[in-house]
Design a protein around this nucleic acid. Structure first.
Lengths: 119, 119
DNA sequence: TTACTGTATTAAACATATTAGTACAGTACA
DNA sequence: TGTACTGTACTAATATGTTTAATACAGTAA
C-alpha cells in the first residue's frame, strides 16, 4: 500500500495520514472503498495497531475516512474535495511562497517552478 | 529579539534557528553583527543555555553564524545569500506546489497566490 | 584579577510516540 | 450458536528526543 520511514522525525501516524490522503487525492482510493483493518495494516507495516488506529481516527476527524464499528473503515464520500485539505495546502503554499521570496527567490524563478508544476 | 512558542511541536532550538535566519534575510541582523551571548539570550528567553548553544552551533554549521571562543557569535558575511537556505526554500516551494496541485488547486489559483506574494 | 565569551560533558527531567497487552461490543457467516 | 473478524478503549511499559541542570575549561577584554 505504501512505505514508511521509521527513522523520520515525523511520527508514523502522521506519515500514514499523509500517505492515505495522497492515495485519495490520486484517485487510487475511492469513496466508500474499504481500508485495511487496523490490525491487518499494522501487521503489514510492522507497527502497532494503536498507531494505525490513531491515524484512522484523525483521518476520520478530518473527514477523509469514516469507520463503522465491527464492519471496517472506509473512504468518505467527499474525501477528494475535502475542505480541510484544500485549506491546509493553500495556506501552506502561500506560506512557502512568502518564505521563498524572503530568501531571495526572484519572481521569475518562482514562476518557472509554477509552470513546471502545471506543465 | 523574538518570541518562542513553547507548546509548539517544533523544538525550541529549531524555532530559534528559523527566527534568526528570518532576521538575517530581512536585513535586521547584518554581517559581522554580534548576536546576544549564549547565556544572555537564554536568560532573556527563559530557556536553557544549552538550547541556545545548540541553535547557534547548527546555524554555524549552516554558514549563517560564526563563533569565536571568548569573543562571541556573529552573523556570517554571506549569510543573506546563503546557499543552504536558497536550496531549502526552493525545494520546499516546489514540493508545496506539487501538493497543492495534487489537492486540486487549479493553476489560476496558484498564479493568484504567486502574484499576491510578488505584488 | 574579574567578568565576560564559547565550548564540552554528564546526568536528570520531561514530553511524546510507540509498543504491548487486554478487554468489550458490533458484524458477518457458516 | 459459535467463530472470526471489525472498531474502540484503556493502562502500563518502553523508546526517543528535547530540555534542563550543574559543572568545568579555555580564550578575551578591561
Amino acid at each position: 500500500m505504501f512505505v514508511l520511514e521509521p527513522q523520520s522525525r515525523v511520527p508514523i501516524y502522521e506519515q500514514m495520514k499523509k500517505k492515505i490522503t495522497e492515495l485519495v487525492l490520486l484517485g487510487v482510493l475511492l469513496p466508500d472503498e474499504q481500508l485495511p483493518s487496523v490490525r491487518s495494516l499494522a501487521r503489514k507495516l510492522g507497527v502497532n495497531p494503536n498507531t494505525v488506529q490513531k491515524a484512522y481516527q484523525e483521518l476520520e476527524h478530518d473527514g477523509i475516512v469514516y469507520s463503522m464499528g465491527g464492519k471496517g473503515s472506509f473512504i468518505s464520500t467527499g474525501a477528494k474535495n475535502n475542505a480541510v485539505i484544500c485549506r491546509q495546502t493553500r495556506t501552506a503554499l502561500a506560506k512557502s511562497l512568502q518564505e521563498a521570496r524572503l530568501a531571495g527567490l526572484v519572481r521569475e524563478e518562482a514562476q518557472k517552478l509554477l509552470d513546471k508544476t502545471y506543465m
